[in-house]
Design a protein around this nucleic acid. Structure first.
Lengths: 345, 345
DNA sequence: CATAATATGGCATACGTATACGTAGAGCGA
DNA sequence: TCGCTCTACGTATACGTATGCCATATTATG
């Protein structure tokens, strides 16, 4: 029946002590219905006593299930300081917590867009699925995504919820959020609203936010003015430069909608340097609700994305893919956080 | 010799096509010297062509080496918002990058101090070693650490470099950094320096920073004044409260050394609310160089820890433990970042 | 009381790799 | 020629678990 006990306990050791066979131990610990309650209790007790834990490698090897998901971050290859985008760090927290709740291990890795990450993890049976968090030029990203889809890889990505040819996506309703931001500014009486953020196919999330703003403007009977728009990616210095550019151009404006908080913080610096009072001369609204947004003075009004829901949804969507169930809704809620950068105290 | 090729390629498939045995494939791909150059080239070519990658589970099962390390975060059980301490997020970035460079996979997990994390990862053969990033009450932490040491677990932790009975630690030279902060304030002519941070055995890192400050004061012939000290942990609101408490007490002071940036930012809020000008009335210096420190206005002077080195050192120290080599030096460099909160522009 | 239907658990084996050990052939010196 | 040392591989097997299939004991059913 059993074998002799050895050093680090295996299921054979448990079996030996319990007077059952090894498969019975395996079944008992996995909660198989074909093991009687009494036997299971006994086995569980012995397992606990011996401090036994299932060997993850053997288990995965045999069952073809790792109960692990890999979280892949992408970045554009920024030289110099290797800071991580704080927004994704917040996401990481949410994902970690929820994957723990689902009993999943989380493998994490940072990649550059250029690398051929799309094979390594799944083919080596490290993980059952992938979560992709990319920021940067979306067009670069697309070909890899298409590869993954064709390869039949189980993955979900955070970002623009668009063409499923690029895989399942979870993201905020950026159009609606953009409209919300626009309406907030309009409600406060602002009419000349600048937009900072690259609103084209390279950054579809920003494009949607801009689209939402335009909807709000339309509804108020205001035509969007391209003179009040500057392309910029999410970086403080670039946000500052873009704002400066509008200031230099001399076009009048009384509010700024920045596509991200980093951009907004840069813009606020430029405005301050130009002697503009916030929000009296120019109101500013951002996007993301980074910790720094609350810290800034004046506090930055912004759109918060529901990170907890995002983490949950990403995990559950991925599991749905893996288990071939129907996926959950892809859209995440957003919330307006009003601070002093739009409303003086 | 070989077997028939199957679905997902295995080392047998490679062997079959190369006309060699499976072990030869294994050896060739691992770079064993007992395989001829020619054979290896051939095998590598076939492997690439078939898109073969070694099954991580089988490999780890057999070799007892996972090439994976687990990164465990601890937090005190804070109710409500589940933010992650930004300092550890920065650390995460550094660790990730360096582990990739070393060819290690990184398993990540958040834990509460109370849980019995100390067994799960290693006994289940998920990882070869542990990196512990804990913040919170150190005394809670100690018993677990001692368990791990007795259990023979391979681990390294970030934090106070103290008694090795609690395992190998990597950390900044907090005493020296504290002295540096003190000297900076003294050089600027400040004499009455307040300290915010719990400087006892519960938070040994803070205690060391305070110790460094005292050294600097001693060297300048100034006696530390307990009336200018408040215990607080690293949280903005608590920093604010502690500062307020000193203000309310009416003790005069012209500078503040906060044991962390979060505390410092809270203190600055309290000072502003009390109508104090920074740095003219009160200079403020923090610790950590969070992104928010640069963002604050005035910019917060602070002590930056060399995160890149920290990540490297943690990984290398852990590998040294695992491979039973001599560990690298445990102390990490720090650097004074001067901003407007101590020197008016 | 005989037989069918469960309930429970054992037996055999597969998962894909790594490694201890053995061995054929080449080269070489005596 | 013999034996020796190397080189370069093959043979056999172990790692620890999960699972398809079968066997026994137990109970229900007529």
């Amino acid at each position: 029946m059993g074998r002799k006990p050895s050093n680090r306990p295996t299921s054979f050791d448990i079996a030996y002590r319990a007077g059952v066979s090894q498969p019975t131990v395996s079944r008992a610990l996995r909660g198989s219905p074909s093991i009687s309650e009494a036997t299971r209790k006994r086995i569980e007790a012995i397992a606990r006593e011996l401090n036994y834990s299932v060997d993850k490698n053997a288990s995965s090897l045999r069952s073809k299930r790792t109960n692990t998901i890999a979280l892949l971050f992408f970045e554009e290859d920024t030289p110099g300081d290797s800071k991580i985008n704080p927004f994704f760090l917040a996401m990481l927290g949410a994902i970690t917590r929820h994957s723990a709740k689902r009993g999943l291990d989380l493998l994490i890795s940072f990649q550059r867009m250029e690398d051929d990450w799309h094979v390594r993890y799944l083919d080596s049976h490290r993980a059952d699925g992938l979560i992709l968090l990319g920021y940067g030029d979306y067009t670069l990203y697309r070909s890899r995504l298409r590869d993954l889809v064709e390869h039949g890889t189980h993955f979900v990505r955070w970002g623009a919820v668009d063409d499923p040819a690029f895989g399942a996506a979870i993201g905020s309703d950026n159009v609606q959020a953009g409209r919300m931001a626009g309406e907030h500014l309009l409600d406060l009486g602002h009419r000349r609203i600048a937009f900072l953020g690259q609103a084209d196919e390279h950054y579809p999330e920003f494009a949607d936010r801009y689209g939402g703003l335009c909807e709000a403007l339309d509804a108020a009977g205001i035509a969007p003015d391209d003179a009040l728009r500057r392309d910029t990616i999410s970086h403080e210095d670039l946000g500052r430069a873009a704002m400066q550019d509008i200031l230099d151009a001399g076009t009048q404006f009384d509010a700024v909608f920045a596509a991200s908080d980093l951009i907004a913080l840069g813009a606020m610096a430029a405005l301050r340097a130009a002697g503009k009072r916030i929000p009296e001369d120019v109101a500013v609204i951002g996007f993301d609700d980074l910790p720094a947004a609350a810290m800034a003075s004046p506090g930055l009004t912004t759109i918060a994305q529901d990170m907890r829901a995002a983490g949950e949804r990403l995990i559950d969507a991925l599991l749905a893919r893996i288990e071939e169930r129907a996926p959950p809704s892809p859209l995440i809620g957003t919330r307006l956080i009003v601070r002093e950068s739009t409303t003086p105290r």
